[in-house]
Every structure is written in structure tokens, then in C-alpha cells.
């Protein structure tokens, strides 16, 4: 039995230590955010954050995540209280089928936690690891820019406790 720290809370899983995190999240813990796209680390659909950095959960054995913080899409906000990056994706209507979007949001979140003022070039280079087949890219970029804006103004406006996560 391993313990994973997901979205700020410990979860015990029965899966073997070598099981890729994605399967533990989806199959054992019932979290839908991270998606199976390729299982080969080529598409980014399964992106989550590990200690604030985007990783591909389909090729990350749960063993290596022990003692570290995992953040999934669900950790950014729910349908009634979406987080700033999720709100930006809704505002830009940045989805067609949406299957890639969870991974896109997590990768963008990883960028903005490190750099809330990314240049257009930095955004595109950073998002390169994730694939979208519907061609929603231009809206995804708009959403990341919008989210960066929101994160920056939240830093200025918000009372410090509210957005302590950043």
C-alpha cells in the first residue's frame, strides 16, 4: 500500500509501486482529469503536476511520487468553483472535443506557477509537449494568455490568503 499526496490530501492506493500514476488516478481513485492519450509520453493528455512541475502521469510510476505533491485538474477547481486557468479556458471556449484540454490546463498551470509573464514564444515552446487533434490550439493559446493575465492581477488584487497556492 502506497500513499500518494494528491491535491493536498493523502490517498492510499493498492496498486503496485510500478503502476503508472495515470492508472492509479483514474482507475483506483476515480479522478477523470488526467486522460489516457498514448501511454507513451508523447501527447500530454495525462499531464499532472508533481511538485508544481508538469509531468506525464502515464509514464510515471507511483513509486517516484511518494512524499511529493501531486496536483490534478480536480485540484484546480470544480465545476462550481473553477480555478483561474479553468475559467480562462471557459472564457475563451477553448475546447472542441476537449479530450486534450485537461492536459493543456495542467501544463499551462505548470508554466504560470513558475512564470506568470510568459512571452508568446515561451507559451508555445512550453505547450509543445501536448497534442490537440481538433485544432483548438489558437484558443488554447488565447486561454493561456488570459490565464496569465488573471494570475498576474490576482497577485496584485487578491487578499494574500485567497490565492496562497501561487
Amino acid at each position: 500500500m502506497l500513499t500518494l499526496n494528491i491535491n493536498g490530501r493523502p490517498h492510499s492506493v493498492e496498486a503496485e509501486a510500478a503502476t503508472p500514476l495515470l492508472y492509479a488516478l483514474r482507475d483506483e481513485l476515480g479522478l477523470n482529469g488526467a486522460k489516457f492519450g498514448c501511454g507513451l509520453g508523447q501527447c500530454g493528455a495525462c499531464t499532472v503536476l508533481l511538485d508544481d512541475r508538469p509531468i506525464l502521469s502515464c509514464i510515471t510510476p507511483i513509486a517516484v511520487t511518494q512524499g511529493r505533491q501531486i496536483t490534478t485538474l480536480e485540484g484546480l477547481g470544480g465545476i462550481d468553483n473553477p480555478g483561474p486557468v479553468q475559467r480562462a479556458f471557459i472564457a475563451e471556449q477553448a475546447a472542441q472535443c476537449g479530450f486534450c484540454i485537461a492536459g493543456m490546463i495542467m501544463r499551462a498551470e505548470g508554466l504560470l506557477r513558475r512564470n506568470a509573464q510568459p512571452s508568446e514564444q515561451e507559451i508555445r515552446t512550453h505547450m509543445r509537449a501536448n497534442l490537440c487533434r481538433c485544432g483548438t490550439h489558437m484558443r488554447i493559446l488565447a486561454a493561456v494568455r488570459r490565464a496569465a493575465q488573471a494570475v498576474r492581477s490576482a497577485r496584485v488584487d487578491a487578499p494574500p490568503t485567497q490565492d496562497a497556492r501561487r
Binding site: 509501486a17 510500478a18 509520453g41 510510476p61 507511483i62 513509486a63 511520487t65
Partner: peptide
């Protein structure tokens, strides 16, 4: 198959099985 859970986070065999072996 499993491995020692305590040492698992630093076990090359487990990391290999859950990451490299997939491809």
C-alpha cells in the same frame, strides 16, 4: 512484480518497470 514498498521510491527496477518498460 512488487518490490519493497519503503524503498520503492528509489528503486531502479520499479522505476524501469513503470516508466521505461512501457516502451
Amino acid at each position: 512484480a512488487g518490490g519493497d514498498v519503503k524503498a520503492a521510491n528509489n528503486d531502479g527496477a520499479i522505476i524501469y518497470a513503470g516508466a521505461c518498460a512501457l516502451c
